[in-house]
């Protein structure tokens, strides 16, 4: 093999950096949507490679649902401090109050759908024209069809039938006033690619990604962490289990998996052996209907 050969993680990394630099070069007010999960932590790592020793040409923004894992928030603040970049936080709670929105009811009342309102307000407040996100095409059927530069109208809506053809490595970021682009640098990565990259680059992650003891509720085959955001019914059995998280979303809609994996190698082995998909195993919000993600994306969701 030639010494001028880029291995597969190197190719994925270079592609992602290229996409981020295109965003920086084409847009006036971009931002990076940071959730505290492994995919957006990977994006920050890629941005460091793309723009250092300069500053990021965009702030990090976080939509705080108020239902976060405290470990993820602590990690977020430490990371931002360490890299010295700007973080903008907007709270879903404020949007609910200001706009008199109605919260979901029920046992696992989630603010997942409501965060779209906060996101759209944030875009308007700062006049962002591009938002970089960590979505991957392998996550879900609707995402498999989305472009790397995905245009949203002024209501944040995605129209799958009117997507721009995306050819070679040429990205068309032209938009009308009021529209914005969601840019996905790790579109072509799979869950396993992200983990392999995290291992190779020795990227730090919040502790909840590794096996730990936690009080959980078993609900329709999924393990949901006990927190203030979940209503316990009489008869609910609270178990203490050794778990880790495969994805980090809200405490109300992210389920844990039983695991003894305390090191990254163990996690990678578990992922290789797993028989359930990332979203299928851990996302309560995708179970609503077969087209749940398609519907949410059409109405402005990431």
């Amino acid at each position: 093999m030639s010494k001028y050969h880029l291995d597969y993680l190197g190719q994925l990394e270079s592609e992602a950096i290229h996409i981020m630099r295109e965003v920086a070069g084409q847009f006036e007010r971009p931002a990076l949507l940071f959730s505290g999960g492994k995919d957006s932590i990977t994006l920050v790592h890629l941005a460091l490679k793309a723009f250092r020793p300069g500053k990021f040409p965009f702030p990090l923004v976080h939509i705080d649902t108020g239902h976060n894992f405290p470990e993820a928030l602590d990690f977020r603040d430490e990371l931002v401090e360490q890299i010295g970049e700007k973080l903008i936080v907007r709270k879903v709670e404020d949007t609910i109050r200001e706009k008199s929105l109605t919260e979901q009811k029920g046992k696992f009342a989630s603010r997942n759908a409501l965060q779209t309102y906060t996101l759209l307000d944030l875009i308007e407040e700062f006049k962002f024209d591009a938002l970089i996100g960590g979505a991957r095409r392998d996550e879900e059927k609707a995402r498999a069809k989305e472009r790397i530069f995905s245009v949203r109208d002024e209501f944040g809506q995605w129209n799958p039938k009117l997507q721009r053809p995306e050819l070679w490595n040429t990205y068309n970021g032209k938009i009308h006033k009021g529209e914005n682009v969601r840019a996905f640098p790790i579109s072509n990565w799979t869950e396993l690619d992200v983990w392999n990259y995290i291992r190779r680059e020795q990227i730090e992650l919040p502790s909840i990604y590794f096996a730990h003891e936690r009080e959980v509720l078993q609900h329709e085959g999924q393990l949901v962490a006990i927190s203030d955001f979940i209503k316990l019914d009489p008869g609910d059995v609270v178990l203490k289990k050794k778990v880790r998280y495969r994805t980090v979303g809200d405490m109300t809609c992210t389920a844990a998996v039983e695991s003894d994996a305390t090191a990254i190698d163990d996690i990678i082995n578990e992922i290789i052996a797993t028989k359930t998909s990332e979203r299928g195993e851990t996302r309560i919000d995708d179970r609503v209907s077969e087209a749940a993600m398609e519907d949410r994306k059409k109405s402005g969701y990431f």
Binding site: L167, N169, T170, N172, K174, H176, E179
Partner: peptide, 15 residues
Amino acid sequence: DNGGAILIDETSCVT
């Protein structure tokens, strides 16, 4: 990769 290009309609912004 240096011989492929796109045309964009400036009024609709579409490729």
